[in-house]
Design a protein around this nucleic acid. Structure first.
Length: 491
RNA sequence: GGCCCGUUGGUCAAGCGGUUAAGACACCGGCCUUUCACGCCGGUAACAGGGGUUCGAGUCCCCUAGGGGUCACCA
């Protein structure tokens, strides 16, 4: 069951909020790496912070990943040979290694109170030094300390960090990065409530889950030497590390809610397609080395590599994402777009008097001109809803002219006379009529478009007419003529 | 502030000692056209600054500046 030398990567979010695009990209890179190498993609929930973790967040993250199509091989909802996959269920495992470290005198109990620490920090500040844990409890007798804990005295556990030497991080993306041990203090690996801190839990889990490559965001690079110290204290082999640069907001600051949509869920609600988001995120930080920009994620899999992952932070540009989304919408299967549109109550309402088949036909007509799902819905509206009101720009241009009534009457005649009502028959009839009247075809087309759709832009007007059907078209032209009359325009 | 990482057009980004410094988004023109998109053609726009190394530097080294990260009983 346990295969060694197999590539195993993991995405380990803490369920304290939504799945951000940064997290989604980290997940994507891990997923790509696993899929490319035939490895295993693990999902692990880092929920040791009971204050901030929530079931809803966990659910949201899983849903987000699933929506993107980033499937995991082992995880909290599907198990696996190295579970459990949520840290909150792994306490006994942590305790086992905490004890090992304590027994080996690699770690020690610390009884310093928050007040002690605060005082140390204040003093350091006063003296203009950087604060570093004093090491006050470093030399306490182990037995005695254990006894005090036994008696119920609260304590944290700190790692005994060597105060000389350097710790080297070999990073697949950044190369060798060195950190001076003397700059690190004896950091806490277990909180006074008995739970491990992040740095400790992550090491134990990555090791116990046989993770071969830790691919994560750059914000973790500075913590890596601490983790390496833990690996060494435990005498464990190091995984490979790869730190991916951060995604920044347009003002080059860290992404936050004030920068608009940042979570996968929000992008979904705004009408972005998973393929577009995936494509965009893949290229934000990774380059194929070619000049191709549109990529199906499955085509990226065999090409993905860490060497072409960017070392510099990337500012995300929603305009480009939106452009890509437009591309994917125009390429998408009409059926799947229709399904996505059906999430909207407006579209659901349409279905009470129309069929799915009709919706799909409409989608085919308008999908080439929408960049987002809501735009698609908007573009489809007049196929399901009555035209009430005409775009002002169109009225001024096409209904205000003195012969507007005459032109609409001509349109009415054409559509009335054409019982075949096909693309070809309509177009030839209209062009013929225009020639007879000595006007341009456009002179008949524009008012017709406005009458049929209420708008100045639409797909080809003959396509629109055919799909709308003769009856509806005639009704709308008559409605427009009446409107003209009532508004005393076009006389 | 200490430490760490990065710095090619507005944005993503190719480049890995010798190029007219790609491509994409955005922007600006033009074409197509029944409108709007799409599409096609063209254009504006970049190696942060300064020192080295080298015959030659966007590519290597150093410094500076500006950016980001980290230094929690958060992850």
């Amino acid at each position: 069951m346990k295969q060694i030398n197999r590539i195993r990567v993991r995405f380990a979010p803490s369920p304290t909020g939504a799945l951000h695009i940064g997290g989604a990209r980290t997940a994507l890179f891990n997923w790509l790496y696993a899929r490319k190498s035939g490895g295993i993609f693990i999902l692990r929930l880092e929920d040791t912070d009971s204050e901030r973790s929530s079931q809803e967040s966990a659910r949201g993250i899983l849903d987000g990943l699933a929506w993107l199509g980033l499937d995991w091989d082992e995880g909290p909802d599907r198990g696996g040979p190295y579970g459990p996959y949520r840290q909150s269920q792994r306490l006994t495992i942590y305790h086992q290694y905490l004890k090992a470290l304590l027994d080996a005198n690699q770690a020690y109990y610390c009884f310093c109170s928050n007040e002690d620490i605060a005082a140390d920090k204040a003093l350091a500040r006063e003296q203009g030094r950087d604060y570093k844990y004093s090491g006050r409890c470093r030399h306490l007798d182990g037995e005695a300390a254990a006894q005090r804990v036994e008696n119920g005295q609260p304590a944290v556990i700190r790692l005994r960090v060597p105060n000389t030497g350097i710790t080297k991080v070999s990073d697949l993306i950044r190369g060798e990065v060195e950190f001076d041990n003397s700059l690190m203090d004896d950091f806490i690996i277990a909180k006074s409530d008995g739970w491990p801190t992040y740095n400790f839990a992550v090491v134990v889990d990555d090791h116990m889950m046989a993770v071969s490559h830790v691919i994560r965001a750059e914000e973790h690079l500075s913590n890596t030497p601490r983790q390496i110290l833990i690996y060494q204290a435990l005498n464990w082999e190091l995984p490979q590390f790869a730190h991916v640069s951060m995604i920044l907001a347009p003002d080059r600051s860290k992404l936050s809610k004030r920068h608009g949509a940042t979570s996968v869920q929000e992008f979904r609600e705004l009408g972005y397609l998973p393929q577009a988001l995936l494509n965009y995120l893949a290229l934000l930080g990774w380059s194929s080395g070619t000049d191709q920009d549109i990529w199906d994620v499955n085509d990226i899999v065999p090409r993905f590599d860490l060497e072409h992952v960017s070392r510099s932070a990337a500012v995300y540009d929603i305009e480009k994402l939106t452009w890509m989304n437009g591309h994917y919408i125009s390429q998408a299967r009409p059926e799947s777009l229709a399904t996505e549109m059906l999430r909207s109550t407006r579209v659901k309402h349409w279905m009470s008097s129309s069929s799915m088949a009709y919706l799909i036909e409409v989608v085919k007509l308008v999908q080439g001109r929408a960049k987002l799902i809501p735009e698609l819905i908007e573009a489809a509206a007049y196929f399901f809803e009555e035209v009430n009101g005409y775009e002002e720009k169109g009225v001024n241009k096409h209904f205000a002219r003195s012969d507007a009534d005459k032109l609409l009457q001509a349109d009415l005649e054409i559509l009335t006379a054409d019982t075949r009502f096909t693309l070809a028959s309509l177009e030839s009839a209209l062009r013929e009529k225009a020639a007879q009247m000595g006007v341009k075809a456009a002179d008949l087309i524009h008012p017709l478009r406005l009458a049929l759709t209420g708008r100045t832009n639409s797909p080809g007007i003959f396509e629109v007419a055919v799909l709308l059907g003769r009856e509806k078209c005639l009704k709308r032209i008559n409605q427009a003529i009446k409107w003209l009359d009532e508004n005393r325009l076009g006389q």
